[in-house]
């Protein structure tokens, strides 16, 4: 329960209410983690919140956490400035199981990977996309990134998306409501699926976004012929300890801090997503 003190060494204002904090430990080495895992971040004196890591394990440089200001703790985190201290506990939970970058070894998994994100749901996927794009140059499968957002101003990681596209990923973006400057697609993220060009029979899909978006996207993928077992979703509930003790992050049979946040869609999860108030 005692956090490791980190210092804010950089901050990126992603949108009006989304901030990426770049953190270095005050003493000691940077933690190891896998894409999809999360940390408990303390805004000292205010409280703690579960925030996914948005950097990639293979990156040099500070840990990144991308925080949306939606409550007292996340607001305090978003207001932290360079030089301020933040407590970090973790990493916790399951990950996207993407291939890790290892120099000189061929990547064995040659399946297409479809990464589908809604809004800030791209944050826990950012590290995975980094790893997947790198792996695609070492014999790994193709990478497809489908991103949906309510409006263009809500899109995060625009520079990354451009870089991934240059690096060979197929990146498609759609917004629910266009702005006058928007010349891209308008509509739900599910509308991008048929144009993406991945092989449904030989792919895996990584989904993170609002539950209703994941529910309909997963269903659409299955309808296209993607095996439910090949779909992973990242689920969220109130997480207060990260250790499996506090009981808040229960979702049916899961303690999501321990058994999630990344879980297979097949089976019980596909059912849970259709049930109210779980």
């Amino acid at each position: 329960m005692t956090p490791v003190v980190h210092r804010v060494v950089g901050r990126i204002q992603e949108t009006d209410d989304v901030t990426t904090l770049c953190l270095e430990p005050v003493t000691g080495a940077r933690m190891d983690f896998r894409p999809g895992q999360f940390n408990m971040l303390s805004a000292f004196g205010v409280g703690e919140a579960a925030i996914s890591l948005s950097s990639a394990p293979g990156d040099r440089g500070p840990l990144r956490h991308t925080v949306r200001d939606v409550g007292a703790v996340t607001r305090a985190l978003c207001q932290r400035d360079v030089g301020d201290l933040i407590g970090v506990r973790g990493p916790f939970g399951s990950d996207w199981q993407v291939p890790q970058r290892t120099v000189g070894t061929a990547v064995k998994d040659v399946r297409d990977t479809v990464v589908i994100a809604g809004g800030i749901g791209l944050a826990p996927l950012r590290g995975a996309v980094h790893e997947l794009v790198a792996a695609s140059h070492g014999g790994g499968g193709r990478v497809f990134l489908l991103v949906g957002a309510r409006e263009p101003s809500q899109l995060v990681f625009n520079d990354d998306m451009e870089a991934w596209a240059r690096d060979g990923a197929r990146v498609l973006v759609s917004v629910d409501r266009a702005s006058p400057q928007w010349h891209g697609r308008v509509g739900l993220v599910t509308a991008l699926l048929s144009d993406a060009g991945f092989d449904p029979a030989n792919c895996r899909a990584l989904l993170c976004g609002p539950e209703i978006m994941m529910r309909f996207t997963a269903r659409a993928l299955v309808d296209m012929g993607v095996a439910p077992e090949a779909i992973l979703v990242s689920l969220e509930r109130n997480m207060q300890c990260g250790l499996g003790w506090c009981g808040h992050c229960q979702l049916g049979p899961f303690l999501l801090c321990r058994d999630g946040p990344v879980v297979p869609y097949a089976g019980i999860v596909s059912q849970l997503l259709t049930e109210r108030e779980r």
Partner: peptide
């Protein structure tokens, strides 16, 4: 029943405290 809340508070002297308090579903 084991559910608990994790609560942080700060004192005027700058001391921070974290408590674990029973909670209920």
């Amino acid at each position: 029943c084991f559910c608990s809340d994790v609560r942080d508070t700060s004192d005027l002297d700058g001391t921070l405290e974290r408590r674990r308090v029973w909670s209920s579903c």
